[in-house]
């Protein structure tokens, strides 16, 4: 399994990277891959987002926050630095062709990672996402091509939550959101946080899908994303280490 830390990257560039990974995964050229990212401020609208999802359009215009229509499932959500986004590119066709099970899996692995950070986190049987104390802390929206899943989960870690009050997160009114920083009363180290989520994801993918992942190739990406594309999916890898 490959793990690629994209660092801080625009939503559009991350999508470009994902689409390249999906194409290669569909062709069988690469293994399942978990991409990690933080985004510059952006409001994204999933395929089922409604006009009413943006409550305060002026707020985003004044801050020059781009609004991007995305090909993922779900409705409206907001990304900004300090929020961790997991983009697993996983071939469900060779594991289990069940979209609901995969979303359940994403919720479970994110909740377990949050608990390892010391955050009480749980799933809600009637609503998607991951919750802490009745407030939403992680948001899910995925897409599939030939049963290769992409897009994924965003988790509020150290990010500012003000913008969430200017939208209807996931199209639902009355939802309150929360972050790891708010729950714990202090910020957490993003590098350690990424490692916790990565280890949990790989472990849970193996156990819940009964698949063998002999090793993890971790590509720590630093610096700018190359716009020219090419054989490295448009991303410059600054370092690589192998974990067993």
């Amino acid at each position: 399994m490959d793990v690629r830390d994209l660092g801080r990257i625009t939503y559009e560039d991350a999508l470009e990277v994902q689409l390249a990974l999906v194409e290669k995964r569909v062709q069988g050229y690469i293994p399942d891959t978990l991409a990690l990212a933080e985004h510059f401020p952006v409001l994204t609208l999933g395929r089922l987002a409604e006009e009413r999802s943006i409550i305060d359009r002026v707020y985003f215009e004044e801050r020059r926050v781009p609004v991007v229509c995305s090909n993922r499932g779900g409705k409206a959500t907001y990304h900004s630095p300090g929020q961790l986004v997991l983009y697993p590119v996983v071939d469900l066709g060779e594991k289990k062709k069940d979209v609901a099970f995969y979303i359940d899996f994403l919720e479970r692995t994110v909740a377990r990672s949050l608990r390892r950070l010391g955050v009480p986190a749980e799933r809600d049987g009637s609503r998607r996402g991951v919750w802490s104390g009745g407030r939403k802390i992680a948001f899910i929206g995925i897409a599939l091509k030939r049963w290769v899943a992409f897009h994924g989960v965003s988790i509020n870690i150290n990010n500012d939550l003000e913008a969430f009050s200017r939208i209807l997160p996931c199209g639902e009114s009355g939802i309150k959101v929360i972050s790891v920083r708010q729950v714990l009363g202090h910020s957490v180290d993003m590098t350690r946080t990424k490692e916790i989520f990565t280890r949990q994801f790989v472990s849970d993918l193996q156990s819940e899908y009964s698949c063998e992942t002999r090793s993890i190739e971790y590509h720590a990406i630093r610096g700018e994303v190359k716009k020219s594309g090419g054989g490295n999916h448009g991303v410059e890898a600054a370092g690589t280490f192998r974990k067993e």
Partner: peptide, 18 residues
């Protein structure tokens, strides 16, 4: 054969049908 021809969506997922 294999070309994406239509996209469908459920609550949290989109799916391209080839």
């Amino acid at each position: 054969t294999g070309q994406d021809i239509v996209e469908i969506a459920t609550d949290k997922a989109t799916f391209d049908i080839p």
